[in-house]
């Protein structure tokens, strides 16, 4: 009769943990809120959070949050929002209107799509969408309109193509497309003059647009990750010699002609997906 469900004890204690952090933060007026790994599954477990208008950073990584209340966007001073490793399946578009949000971390969630109008962030600099279930068809139309973006992490998603709109990301320095299903790259990546990190390893790529040769990827300030693709022989040969050789080769007339041939008559066979994504926890429902 007076038995208490065992599961309630850790649950309530975790809840109080989150509350305790909130109370503390309120007391000392700490603008940076750390609620990482507190077993939180809903914002309801954090009463008063949405009224803490002074906070500039909110870290909620390693929890079990399934959804975000649109009211979170009322935290207008928030600059960093970290929801890494949660159970998010969707996010409210209201986040895109947060006036000071610079860094948004949504990696390791279960996002199948982003809401329409998502790309409206006024000052977003770093967007981490690693390890979700996104692809070119589930991105909103204005996704590549975030001109202030410095770093875009799309690794561990399901892209086969990237829109040529990516050329609008004029300030992009870091582009991660690791372990997607990319079959080709848009030549417009070659227009991203400030790009100094390009991760395209673990895809189904065979050829590279010659325009990529315009990027300064061979300097010691740049990183170009390309392994795990089924490169055509001329490219594979150059990569054996090093990135500098590849970049020089991409700029040659020889390659330009060859690329044209690849694109028209001699299309290389598209390799099969190389990663079994069924095991990804982002697929969990």
């Amino acid at each position: 009769m007076n038995q208490t469900p065992v599961s309630c004890i850790p649950n309530s204690s975790k809840m109080s943990k989150a509350k305790k952090v909130l109370e503390e933060a309120k007391e000392i007026k700490n603008p940076e809120l750390d609620l990482s790994d507190k077993g939180i599954s809903s914002f309801e477990e954090m009463p008063g959070l949405l009224n803490m208008l002074n906070i500039t950073r909110l870290t909620l990584s390693h929890n079990k949050i399934k959804s975000i209340p649109p009211g979170l966007a009322n935290l207008t001073n928030l600059e960093i929002l970290n929801l890494a490793n949660n159970h998010l399946e969707e996010i409210p578009v209201s986040l895109s209107s947060m006036p000071k949000l610079r860094i948004l971390n949504l990696q390791i969630n279960r996002l199948d799509s982003l809401p329409r109008g998502f790309g409206a962030f006024p000052v977003i600099e770093v967007l981490d969408l690693t390890y979700n279930n996104l692809n070119e068809n589930t991105l909103p139309g204005n996704f590549f309109m975030m001109e202030t973006l410095r770093a875009l992490y799309l690794g561990d998603n399901d892209f086969e193509h990237i829109s040529s709109d990516i050329k609008n990301l004029k300030n992009l320095q870091i582009l991660v497309l690791r372990e997607n299903d990319l079959i080709d790259l848009p030549k417009e990546i070659g227009e991203l003059q400030r790009l100094r990190e390009l991760h395209i390893q673990g895809n189904r790529l065979t050829i590279i647009p010659p325009e990529i040769g315009n990027l300064d990827m061979s300097s010691n300030k740049s990183v170009f990750k390309f392994e795990g693709n089924e490169w055509v022989t001329p490219i594979a040969d150059q990569l054996q010699l090093g990135i500098t050789h590849l970049m020089e080769y991409l700029r040659t007339e020889t390659y330009r002609i060859m690329y044209h041939r690849y694109m028209t008559s001699q299309k290389p066979e598209v390799p099969p997906p190389c990663i079994d994504k069924a095991k990804k926890i982002s697929r969990n429902r």
Binding site: D34, H62, N82, N85, R178, V223
Partner: peptide
């Protein structure tokens, strides 16, 4: 740390993940 935002110093061991 790029996941939990905990401060790190020279001595903290960390992993590299997409150069983060």
């Amino acid at each position: 740390c790029s996941v939990c935002d905990q401060k790190m110093n020279q001595k903290t061991k960390f992993y590299e993940y997409d150069l983060k």
